[in-house]
Structures are given as C-alpha cells and as structure tokens.
Computed example of a mutant assay.
Amino acid sequence: MKTVFDTEELEPVRDLARRFAQERVAPGYMEREKSGRFDMALVREMGGLGLIAPELGEQYGGLGASHLCSGLIIEEIGKADFTFSYVSLLASLNGQILSANARPEVAEEWLPGLIAGEHLLAIALTEPKGGSDAASLGLKMERDSDAYILNGEKTSISANQVAKGVITFARTGTAEDRARGISAILVPLDLPGITTSKFSNMGQNSIGHGSIWFDNVRVPANHLLGEEGKGFVQVMQGFDFSRSLIGLQALGTARQSLDETWTYIGERRAFGKPLSAYQGITHQLADFDTRVEAARLLSLNALWLKDQGLRHTAEAAMTKWWPPLLAYEAIHACLLIHGHAGYSDALPFQQRLRDVLGLQIGDGTAHIMKNIIARERAGRTANAASEKIR
C-alpha cells in the first residue's frame, strides 16, 4: 500500500532493495539460519549497490540520503530475511554514532568499509547485571597515556562473532555518576585481551548474539567517541533512529507473511471452496493487514520527523514496542492458517516467528518503551523512575 512517505524520489531505491532482497537474499534465508552462517559476500554485494547506511555522507561513500530511505531499505530486506536486515540496522546505528562523534581519522578509517559492506560493527551496551538499566554499567575504562584500558564483560551483543569492531560503552566515572560517568569508544575486535562467545538462541542465529570479555584491553585513545562522560547521551540519541528502523524491520517480515497467506487462501480449498470464501479466515488477515499498515505509518512518521530535525523520541519508542509484538502475532496467525505445513520447517513462518520474538527483548523491552513515552508525554517529574532508563 502506497503512503505519503513513499515518494517518487525514493521509489527507485526501494525497487532496487526489493529486487536484491527477493532475488539474492530470500533464497538462502532458512539455510543461513540453520547453519548459523553469515554471508559477508552478500553483505559486500549489498554495499556495492549503495544499500547500506545510505543516509551517511558522500565523503564516506554514502548517498547523503534521507532516513526514510534507510527505513524503506530495511523493510524490504526484512521481508526477505529478518536476520540479514541487521546489516542495515547495525550500519545505520553505528554509522550515525561514528560520523557524529569519531575523530576524523577514525571515521575515515572505518566508515567507508562499513558502507561498502567490507565489515560490520557491533554495539556493546548491555551487561550481565545491567539489562535495561543502561546507566549502571560496570565495565571499566581507564586512561593510560595514549590509550584506554578496558576490563569487564558485555553480553547479548548482536554480531559479536562476525563484526570487525564494536562501539563499547564503559564507565570512566564512578558508579554514583550514573549516566554522567559513561563514555563510548570504538574497539577493534582483534585486539589482545578480547574473547567472545556465541549463544544458542531460538532465532537470529546467522547474525548471532553473545558475550564479549575485555581483559586489560588497550585501545588507542583517539578511538574515544566524543568526550568522556558523554557516551550515554550519544547512544540514547542513536536509539531514536534505530528504534524506528526496528519497527520497519519487523513489519517487513510480517508483511511478507501476510502477502504469502493472502495468496495461499485463494489457492487452498476446503469443503469445495477456497479458504478466501470463509470470513473466519479473511477477517483475521484483514485485521492484521490493517494494523500492520497503521504501524508502518507510525514507523515512517518517526523517520520523517528525524529528517525534519524534529523531536521523535516518543514516536521512536512507540515503533519499538508495538511493531515487534504485532509482527509476532501476525506471523503466528499466518502460520496457523497454513496448518501443519506452517508448523513444519518446510515453510519459513516458524523461523520468522522465532526471529521477530527477539526484538521484544533487545534494544529495550515494551515496558521500557512505555516509560519513555510516558516521560515524553507527562514530563520528567511525573515519571521520575524513567530517569534510570534514559
């Protein structure tokens, strides 16, 4: 369904993303997930088409495109392979942080390769004892001459096994400083003292998640992003962008499932009629179709607000908690309508269901997002508890 945000200017990029997604990405979706293998050759192909972080500047190899453009791309990739769409999500989130806060020589070293698909970057905020309380980090970062020394653990980090570097948030102040004592630094993952592990998850296994341990890891001081004590602000601003992308990432997967199911009920017959003749089936799909389109508009609007330089924190939080939940429910309904074939691993519904479920946890749970929305709408004094979150 075409919306006011699907402009003629963006249509060629979206068409290119759709062709790449359906012809190159979709065929290997389930095989990559079963094997736990991430295809970097496909990432480079995507980068060669200009489909990775197109909103970044031309000086780094980007297109200087709108944030809406990035949203439409991740939606199309999400239709083909939810997990592969993490390429778009991680590149845009980390690319934004680097382009705004890295020293020029560091940005010039890392961003062109990121945009070209030569490497991935991870982002490390979550810790074993921290979870959603992002201001209570325990990983320590201390200055030592021309370097910072890192000690501690990060966990539940996406792409920790396949990334070349990781934007890491660590404590340079005291625990009492909370958010004011957190700094950000870009850490190459081949430095001595770094070890990683990969979790065995229900889904998203091709991109993978796991822990990263830092044991006296020495990182060049010029890899500091911005100023000491400003890392918390940096990541929260970046999350307003990534949360809007996550909404479209999940909704792309839901839309693909709905489109396939609309086709299926026109072909599948029961009691002498196609399933599309039965309102018990069609009304389910009509309901989800309506809500998916509404959620898509919400997500696109958040990106449009960002393009206009307008505050969109509440809107971004809305797109983070509702679309992943809605996508899960829609895919679940599509799976059931397909009967046992949907339940089997012959069709991708079961895989999509497991993949999108993870986004009800990562990057902030629904409860955290609702706290953010309440704070934005009612004000800080009316929701003081959310201060610990943002």
Rank of each mutant, 00 (worst) to 15 (best):
V4Q: 10
D6T: 14
E9K: 11
L16Q: 04
R18K: 08
R19W: 10
F20Y: 15
E23A: 15
A26V: 07
G28I: 12
M30T: 14
E31N: 13
E33Q: 11
G36K: 03
R37D: 01
R44K: 15
G48Y: 04
L49K: 08
G57F: 00
G57L: 00
E58H: 10
E58K: 14
G61M: 08
G62H: 02
L63C: 07
I77A: 15
A80N: 13
F82P: 02
T83S: 12
L90R: 01
A91N: 01
S92V: 13
L93Q: 12
Q96T: 03
S99M: 01
A100V: 00
A100S: 13
N101F: 06
A102D: 10
P112D: 10
A116T: 09
H119L: 08
A122L: 05
I123G: 06
L125Y: 05
P128F: 12
K129L: 10
G130L: 09
G131C: 11
A134G: 14
A134M: 00
S136R: 02
G138D: 05
K140Y: 02
N151R: 09
E153K: 05
I157A: 01
I157Q: 03
S158C: 13
Q161W: 07
V162D: 00
A163H: 05
A170K: 04
T172E: 10
A179D: 06
R180T: 07
G181K: 07
I182Q: 05
L186R: 06
L191V: 13
I194H: 09
T195M: 05
T195P: 04
M202P: 02
M202S: 03
Q204A: 07
S206L: 06
G208E: 02
H209W: 05
G210L: 13
S211P: 03
S211W: 00
I212E: 04
N216L: 11
P220R: 13
N222E: 11
E227W: 14
E227T: 04
E227L: 06
G229L: 08
G231R: 04
G231E: 06
M236Q: 12
S242N: 12
L245C: 08
L251W: 11
G252K: 01
S257F: 13
T261D: 11
Y264A: 15
R268S: 09
R268P: 00
A270L: 10
G272N: 12
G272V: 07
G272E: 08
G272W: 01
P274T: 08
G280F: 03
I281L: 03
L285M: 01
D289V: 00
R291V: 07
R291G: 03
R291K: 13
R291F: 11
V292R: 05
A294M: 12
S299K: 03
S299P: 09
L300T: 09
L303P: 03
L303V: 14
W304A: 15
Q308L: 07
A316C: 12
A317Y: 06
M318P: 00
K320M: 11
P324D: 14
L326K: 13
E329L: 15
C334R: 02
H338N: 01
L347C: 07
V356L: 12
L357N: 05
Q360K: 14
I361Q: 06
G362E: 03
D363V: 09
T365K: 03
A366P: 04
I368G: 04
K370Y: 06
I372N: 03
A374V: 04
R375I: 01
R375F: 12
T381R: 14
T381D: 13
E387L: 15
R390I: 11
